[in-house]
Design a protein around this nucleic acid. Structure first.
Lengths: 226, 226
DNA sequence: TTGATTTAAGGTTAATTTAGGTTAAAAACT
DNA sequence: AGTTTTTAACCTAAATTAACCTTAAATCAA
């Protein structure tokens, strides 16, 4: 899913350029030009990050950020300002902003700061429970466990990686080379033998459900029929 | 306790002013003027944050930051640079920096950015009180204590460090090497055996809550499922 | 053009290597 | 002394390597 940016900017030319430029980097941009529209836009679109010009008609960027923060205390906010006084900077951070860019800025700088802030705030919450269902089996990727009718089998790291790849490509062909590159990082002769060994193990693990089959497409790869 | 700043700056006049100015705000400042001294200074003083001029003799700020990051992947780093090219900015963030200030900068701006980064990084890691909850357990990092159902176990320094690292990376894989570098500063054979010993201890400590598991990802690292 | 033969790709099982685990003893702090 | 940390010896399990086996496709022979 695209990252949504709420972008508040009252200079129309600049705003258009920045918006298009962000969209070309595959962000989704909601742009407003008036401070008083900010809160409504926030509520409607629930952006992942805000980029707020400090100088806005009717309600300045700092004030807007304070209100947004009341709705979401952790959303990252970047302020844009033409002023060089650090008074402003201090005020911005006090109101809860996470970053600050002086105008004029380059698009590269803006994009880097956006990605950097998103990384800082989001990174480690993404790991959901990671359960995969494969026929009568369940794979708990976070526990490295494979379960079948109350029996639990511990998986090694390699086994889990391989199951994940096969499962992500169920009912399509995955090339042998892709698997080797993803798991071992190279497709040398020995790793290729290695993959054979793990395939034998997985076929053994999944043998109790006849609806499952790991088929070999010789010279090409595998097809996991589920 | 004062916040320690490792400050790398080769311009003596500027350096002196900034150092004194930071000290007047009750930071503790370790200043170096040569890039190659950076790593030693880091190891000796274990600063809370680094402020690195990009242009340094013998080893530039980016290179230094990469090396420091190997020792401590989460320490906040601010780059100072006179260049305006965003090339540099990108390079800085890639090497793991968290922020970037263009020269000339005001002291206010520097101080605000330092405080802001410290907030961002510390919040995530340690909740101000230094108490970590892990399943049915609580860890009081400042007291070196682990509690479980009213029973309190005193932790040694190494034990506490290791629990902290594992906990910060709960439900993701931490590499063995990162742990070794963070705690022992090198990943020699003996320290590696050492880490094994502490892992055995921690597994013993946490064994009463079955929802917790320190899993080994052989050849990679550990995965603390919480 | 159809069955036999060759060959390359992959499969199976076992041996070996390596990473890590456990426990205990020695050394180093405090 | 008492605790923490390091070193050491021995143990276990996963990953890799190796040897030999099977199969499918390609080539060949009649």
């Amino acid at each position: 899913m695209k990252t949504k940016i709420l972008y508040a900017e009252d200079e129309p030319f600049l705003g258009k350029i920045v918006k298009e430029s962000l969209e070309s980097r595959s962000f989704e941009v909601i742009m407003i030009t008036d401070g008083k529209d900010g809160l409504v836009a926030y509520g409607q679109h629930k952006p992942d990050i805000c980029v707020l010009d400090v100088m806005l008609p009717n309600k300045d960027g700092f004030k807007l950020s304070t209100e947004i923060r009341q709705l979401n205390p952790t959303i990252p906010i970047i302020f844009l300002t033409a002023k060089t006084q650090t008074d402003d900077l201090a005020k911005g951070f006090q109101s809860g902003g996470n970053d600050y860019i002086r105008k004029p800025f380059s698009m590269e700088e803006l994009i880097i700061r956006i990605n950097n802030l998103l990384n800082l705030t989001q990174k480690k919450n993404i790991n959901a429970t990671n359960v995969i269902t494969i026929g009568q089996y369940e794979v708990f990727l976070n526990k490295y466990e494979l379960s079948h009718q109350d029996k639990i089998k511990k998986l090694s790291h390699r086994e889990a990686e391989l199951i994940k790849i096969l499962s992500e490509n169920r009912n399509t062909i995955v090339s042998r080379k892709d698997i080797l590159m993803q798991i071992w990082g190279d497709d040398s002769y020995f790793n290729s033998r290695n993959l054979d060994v793990y395939m034998t193990k997985l076929r053994e693990y999944f043998k109790d459900d006849p609806s499952l089959e790991i088929m070999t497409i010789k010279g090409v790869g595998y097809f996991f029929r589920v």
